[in-house]
């Protein structure tokens, strides 16, 4: 975590445009539910695709476990952003329950909450992936804290949503329009990130830095022909 925030600090210093774009994205997603569709899909796709792997990782004086942990940290921190988005929406929803801007936001529909819950469960699954890869990732209390930290906001929100359900004539589950779109976005994001985690799990073994190795072999064959 410390290394991640260190890299974020460097990123802000050297590429403030990228960093501020991400911040702008979070603000827009929290404040403008109608913008969520486009922004969340883009974020999910971007998070999936942007997994730069440089040769430097293989050259650094790190063990294989440390390299895996470094890669997982990148994946984890994408989840952290989604979590921040969710928490910020929830907090604003509590603070401004009658706000026109926040109407139809994340906290309105249990379907959306279900999708958000799935997203957080995938974050928990990631922790399990770390354990499977033999990465201890720190003390036990830290892991427990992560489970609680990921789950608590959703538990509170589910409780709030179900109590609201009791006072609606039409079940909130069948809300249409923005709520379904938001749910769809979050489900798509969950699915994409789950695929990403599975792919990462499949690449556990640190292999040859493949692009260079294949290029070398092709160049050698071309030279000999």
């Amino acid at each position: 975590m410390r290394e991640y925030f260190r890299q974020e600090r460097l990123s802000f210093r050297y590429l403030p445009v990228f960093w501020l774009t991400r911040l702008l994205f979070v603000v827009l997603v929290v404040l403008l539910p109608t913008a969520q569709m486009f922004l969340m899909i883009m974020a999910a796709v971007f998070s999936y695709g942007f997994r730069y792997e440089t040769e430097e990782e293989c050259l650094l004086p790190l063990t294989d476990e440390e390299i895996k942990r470094m890669r997982l940290t990148r994946c984890n921190m994408i989840w952290l952003r989604y979590l921040v988005v969710g928490l910020a929406s929830i907090l604003l929803g509590y603070m401004f329950p009658d706000s026109i801007i926040l109407r139809g936001g994340l906290f309105e529909s249990p379907v959306i909450l279900g999708a958000f819950f799935a997203l957080q469960m995938a974050a928990v699954y990631e922790t399990l992936l770390e354990r499977a890869a033999g990465i201890t990732g720190g003390k036990k209390t830290y892991t427990l804290f992560r489970y609680v930290f990921c789950s608590l906001p959703t538990v509170i929100l589910f409780a709030y949503a179900f109590t609201k359900l009791a006072f609606h004539k039409r079940p909130a589950f069948f809300m249409s329009g923005a709520a379904w779109i938001h749910a769809g976005i979050l489900l798509a994001a969950t699915a994409l990130m789950a695929v990403y985690c599975v792919r990462l799990y499949g690449e556990w073994k640190i292999r040859d830095f493949a692009p260079n190795a294949e290029k070398e072999a092709k160049a050698a064959k071309k030279e000999s022909n």
Binding site: C58, K205, R207, N212, A213, E216, A220, E223, S224
Partner: peptide
Amino acid sequence: GTNGCGKTTLLRTILGSYRLDR
């Protein structure tokens, strides 16, 4: 050595970029 003989392969293996795991 000539182009494609394996100079870079050798150096990258020494550095750890290429692994001896195939």
